[in-house]
Design a binder for these strands. Structure first.
Lengths: 223, 223
DNA sequence: CCAAAAGTGTTATTGATACACCCATGC
DNA sequence: GCATGGGTGTATCAATAACACTTTTGG
């Protein structure tokens, strides 16, 4: 099936590719894996793989996610399907792109760092990427940034409980701008999506912060 | 894209399916075609077809659109990709769904009605549909209804020039609710997306209406 | 002159923004 | 007692929502 001489009646390959986001060191980052083989040997790329005939697209995405991160049960959303005929130089391959959000804390476990040739790269300083993966990644970043402004999607990047200042910081990192503390807190508490845990975070030489958590781990749209 | 050995995996079929919307007789309608062959012989379904190896997904969608409606150069957007393993009883088939908007006037031309076994069906009174096409159609309706409220996407359903009352009616049909005339006009004119044509529509026993058109046929987001 | 749709402003309410000081703790 | 981040309220401005009458035409 290495023909570039396309047969009209042959089926294309179908893959899933994942844009896996996390936030660490005050930056929005995405996972990249180094390709071992041709094409683009040695280049960075998004994690992905061919779908198997018995699995749904989402199952394929979850499988890849689990393989690369060791996690499961995180926010996952279908992004877009990319199918330009020449996007893979070997053969016709259509890819269904997904994006996932993982709190950094869930990735600090030893097992998740076992895989070599895997990096978490700030989305605003990209290396050269294989295939059309730069386009896919930028598409995902745009979608995430848009969605942050009218939903509570950031819950997918937060640890189970957090200070309001940490939540604000998360918004600021993603939208790449600063927010007013008092207005931010008012709005967040007004959504009714947060619950005080009753615990406090004693963290340094300052007043301890109340810890909050999301009532339900579900995306909710404002407005 | 870990696997380079394509032969380990049998490729699924890949189709595009289209939800083609229009508005006539005060109702939002979608195109349905009667299936001739198994599976679901005789059942209504969304227009669609297998993608060819040399064409992009959007080209495939445009091809199907042209075949069924005779039109081209209308609003077309990728909706979602549906890939449950059992969605087609014969074999694994993944479908990339698109939705299109066509002004009813463009469909009144004789050629577009040549195709037998094709209906424009109100989206709130669906017949039984083949495959998972009901799910796809409902997904499209939801997307259209949402998008109408924060963009000028309705331009895709309007004729070249129109009265403001016709534009308002279009919104009302799609969102399935009524709008205040004065607020509607204020908001629409405030967007700056409309231009007076200078012409008037003399239509019946009443004051003639100014005719407007969209400055550019492009989707623009409010807010 | 009657019927039918076009056209037009003001007020009230709501939501968004701007802005500065005191609090509780560790060292 | 001082440095550090936590926590709080009010006033202004902008956007949205509610609401009813006059105008222009054809018949």
């Amino acid at each position: 099936m290495k023909n570039t001489n396309y047969d009209e009646y042959e089926n294309p390959g179908v893959t899933v590719d994942l844009v896996i986001f996390t936030v660490s060191e005050d930056a929005l980052k995405a996972m990249m894996v180094r390709r071992a083989e041709a094409p683009y040997p040695g280049a960075w790329s998004l994690p992905g793989g061919f779908i198997k005939l018995g699995e749904s697209l989402e199952e394929a995405a979850l499988r890849v996610l689990k393989e690369k991160t060791g996690v499961d049960n995180v926010y996952l959303e279908q992004l877009y399907t990319f199918g330009q005929p020449e996007r893979d130089p070997r053969a016709r391959v259509i890819t269904v792109a997904y994006f996932a959000l993982i709190p950094w804390k869930q990735l600090e476990q030893p097992e998740s760092n076992k895989i070599a040739d895997l990096i978490w790269n700030p989305v605003d300083q990209l290396p050269e990427l294989a295939f059309d993966h730069e386009e896919i990644l930028k598409f995902a970043v745009r979608r995430l940034r848009t969605k942050v402004s009218y939903s509570n999607i950031v819950y997918g990047l937060m640890p189970k409980s957090f200070r309001l200042s940490e939540l604000q910081r998360m918004y600021e990192i993603i939208i790449n701008g600063s927010l007013d503390k008092r207005n931010f807190r008012k709005r967040m508490l007004a959504t009714g999506l947060l619950r005080e845990t009753g615990k406090k975070d004693i963290n340094g030489a300052h007043r301890p912060a109340k810890l909050y958590q999301f009532k339900k781990m579900e995306i909710t749209y404002f407005n």
